[in-house]
């Protein structure tokens, strides 16, 4: 651990060489030093050197834009592969995408412009100061109607409540309070997205039962499926 402890999915094929005129891109998303980032491998599988790389995003739900220029050595020679990291900012133009976390990307080089789309794991958009004040949490929990509460289950989870607390905290999901009621651990948690949406949660964990009950409360119901997936990914990986 240390440098990058947030849950980072394995790299996926974003642009196969067959669609990129020899350019292949594998990638994933992570979070480092308070910023989301794209972590990619560019490979030149063409028979000519590639130069002039640049990247652009279409408008997206969270206003993600590249935070710097793409750094690829020029030229990228035939058979050469290079790992590169692109820091992202969340201060760009916003347009709601379906699914919400969809991101359309354009990459250009001296040969052509290539397009692909991917989905951003929403946990890379959980900010470091997402710990809600306890008093505000209680008021907000009460304030959000039960129609805005969605329950789900996380199966096959073998973490203790302490392990879950620390693993979730490394991913910017903060435990505001915890109680043990009749042997069941109840964790009250908060997270905040880069666009200032708050999500409150309750985790019910029983040491004798690998199924965890997750209840999410937020005024922005749209984000719930992505948050449920993030909890699953973080707790099971």
């Amino acid at each position: 651990g240390g440098a990058s402890e947030v849950y980072t999915p394995p790299k996926q094929m974003w642009l196969p060489a067959s669609k990129g005129k020899g350019l292949e891109i594998l990638g994933t998303f992570s979070r480092k030093q308070g910023n989301p980032q794209m972590v990619m491998t560019f490979s030149n599988k063409a028979m000519q050197p590639m130069t002039g790389f640049a990247v652009q995003f279409n408008k997206n739900s969270f206003g993600l834009v590249p935070g710097s220029a793409l750094t690829i050595p020029s030229p990228l020679s035939p058979n050469q592969s290079i790992d590169t990291t692109l820091p992202l900012s969340a201060n760009g133009p916003i347009q709601r995408m379906d699914p919400l976390t969809n991101l359309q990307v354009a990459v250009k080089n001296c040969i052509d412009v290539f397009y692909f789309s991917t989905t951003v794991p929403i946990n890379v958009l959980f900010v470091e100061d997402g710990q809600m004040d306890r008093k505000v949490f209680l008021a907000t929990w009460k304030d959000i109607p039960s129609s805005n509460e969605v329950q789900s289950q996380i199966s096959n989870c073998n973490l203790s409540s302490e392990q879950a607390t620390s693993r979730l905290q490394r991913n910017n999901i903060f435990t505001v309070a915890n109680r043990n009621v009749d042997g069941q651990d109840m964790l009250y948690q908060s997270l905040r997205l880069t666009n200032n949406i708050w999500v409150l949660s309750e985790l019910k964990m029983n040491p004798d039962n690998p199924t965890v009950q997750l209840s999410l409360k937020t005024r922005a119901l749209d984000v719930i499926p992505s948050i449920q997936k993030a909890y699953n990914d973080i707790m099971l990986n």
């Binding site: 306890r134 008093k135 209680l138 929990w141 309070a177 109680r179 009621v181 009749d182 069941q184 109840m186 009250y188 309750e202 019910k204 209840s215």
Partner: peptide
């Protein structure tokens, strides 16, 4: 301190009200 105690109590009540019997 009293405020903290109240908050502790509120979380205990919340947890009790939501725990499965």
């Amino acid at each position: 301190e009293d405020d903290d105690g109240d908050l502790d109590d509120c979380f205990s009540k919340l947890a009790e009200s939501r725990s499965n019997p």
